[in-house]
């Protein structure tokens, strides 16, 4: 009975924090989805891999959080390093993906020109990388869930808590599939790639500032 309540709590927490998760993942997910070809199936596959990798990140983090006892016991410097490193990695992944998309569009690779060709299922590596990295980034709802999971009695309970938390947040990601209906042309692909570069620069700046121990927001005295 207690387990059911606990999982219900995790699901409700995920559902309530969904907008924050969507906001947190949006800068990575939206341009990368726009960079893909249109088509519900393609986007569904991309989202599934993204969410799957995100779940993997969550579970890994749940195990670590439980192992360490509580997230709060992590010194702020360690949290800052994790936050800064994840953002630097995300920046590198976004830049890599923007460049790769540029080559792919320029060369009109088989993935784009599929008329008469048999489609092979290929793992969208970018979705896996982005999903995992956003899964371990310390966004606020994630930290809340981490603190709660760390207080549970067993590793299995902590992992289950995060799994249900993940299901709650994932519902908010379903509307992203709607991006598949946006008509793709050179304009959309270029905008997506340019946006990835801008976001990558911003993430890189944040990452460097955090690792350097500087305040990101310049209004402090």
């Amino acid at each position: 009975m207690y387990g059911t309540f606990l999982m219900g709590e995790a699901f409700a927490l995920g559902l309530a924090s969904g907008p924050a998760c969507v906001a947190s993942c949006g800068p990575v997910l939206v341009p990368s989805l726009l960079g893909e070809q249109a088509g519900l199936r393609l986007h569904g596959r991309y989202l599934t891999v993204f969410l799957g990798a995100r779940l993997l990140g969550y579970l890994l983090f749940a195990a670590v959080a439980w192992e360490l006892g509580t997230l709060l016991s992590l010194p702020p410097t360690v949290r800052t390093v994790v936050y800064g490193s994840v953002h630097l990695l995300l920046a590198a992944a976004l830049l890599w993906h923007a460049i790769r998309l540029g080559h792919r569009h320029a060369a009109a690779a088989p993935e784009l020109v599929t008329i008469g060709a048999r489609r092979h299922w290929r793992l969208p590596h970018s979705a896996a990388v982005f999903g995992f990295l956003t899964g371990i980034s310390l966004c606020p709802p994630f930290v809340v869930a981490g603190v709660r999971a760390a207080s549970l009695g067993s590793l299995a309970a902590a992992v289950s808590f995060f799994a249900f938390f993940f299901v709650g947040t994932s519902i908010w990601f379903v509307p992203f599939a709607g991006i598949s209906f946006i008509r793709r042309d050179e304009a959309v692909a270029t905008v997506a790639r340019m946006a990835m570069v801008i976001i990558a620069c911003y993430y890189a700046l944040i990452g460097i500032m955090f690792l350097a121990g500087r305040q990101v927001y310049g209004y402090q005295r």
Partner: peptide, 13 residues
């Protein structure tokens, strides 16, 4: 459009 997309998403995040 790229700047718009980036800043809208980053502002929300």
């Amino acid at each position: 459009w790229a700047v718009l997309l980036a800043i809208v998403l980053l502002s929300f995040a």
